[in-house]
């Protein structure tokens, strides 16, 4: 595959990860923070931003670790342990750097970073990258796209939930109940995108 072809594939994968293959709404990964941290647009944006960054970087790092280490040593079955360790170390490192150089960003983002370490969507993105046999460049597109897709979904949900505060929700459905119903409707809407890329 030539570079330009690869680049094109990366773009397509990136685009489809945002819309047709949205990691949250079609694969249902990362539901936990999606239901609990989607009360306000501002915090949703903070968490979403952190996810985009961490997902992009860890998918690439994990691709390198997988292909350059595990495949060479014939130890593919160890990918779960390795991926989690790399994600945890990376998040630690990023937290340290942000704390040192940008106290303001640390205040806004800092509390979300440790939460992300155990987010299944982050690990899921790395595992899909392996299953689907992406190349390094395509993985980059995939990681970024998956993150942006997650951000888009939680942002939309937070916007809806802010409106929801003003509306008449049946008592028994308040909180997680109505959130899951809305998530389902949003997922249906995103399925509508599936025809966009053949």
């Amino acid at each position: 595959m030539s570079l330009s072809q690869e680049l094109q594939t990366a773009l397509v994968v990136c685009f489809s990860a945002v819309f047709t293959q949205n990691i949250l709404l079609t694969l249902f990964l990362g539901m936990c923070p999606f239901t609990s941290v989607s009360r306000e647009v501002r915090t949703a944006l903070g968490l979403g931003g952190a996810v985009v960054f961490v997902m992009t970087c860890t998918v690439v790092l994990n691709w390198m670790a997988y292909h350059w280490l595990l495949v060479k040593l014939d130890l593919e079955f160890f990918r779960f342990v390795l991926f989690i360790v790399i994600i945890a170390a990376f998040v630690q490192f990023v937290e340290m750097v942000i704390d040192r150089y940008s106290p303001r960003l640390y205040q806004n983002l800092g509390i979300f970073l440790p939460l992300i370490t155990v987010n299944c969507a982050i690990l899921g993105a790395s595992l899909f990258m392996v299953i689907r046999d992406y190349t390094l460049l395509v993985s980059l597109g995939w990681g970024f796209g998956a993150g942006v897709g997650w951000l888009l979904a939680i942002l939309a949900m937070a916007g809806i939930r802010q409106r929801l505060d003003e509306s008449r929700v049946p008592v028994g459905l308040r909180g997680p109940g109505i959130t899951l119903i809305i998530a389902g409707l949003m997922a249906l809407a995103f399925i509508g995108f599936s025809g966009v890329l053949g």
């Binding site: 936990c32 609990s36 915090t43």
Partner: peptide
């Protein structure tokens, strides 16, 4: 349901 970090800290 997990609480948001703000809520947990509170």
């Amino acid at each position: 349901m997990k609480q948001s970090p703000d809520m947990a800290r509170l």
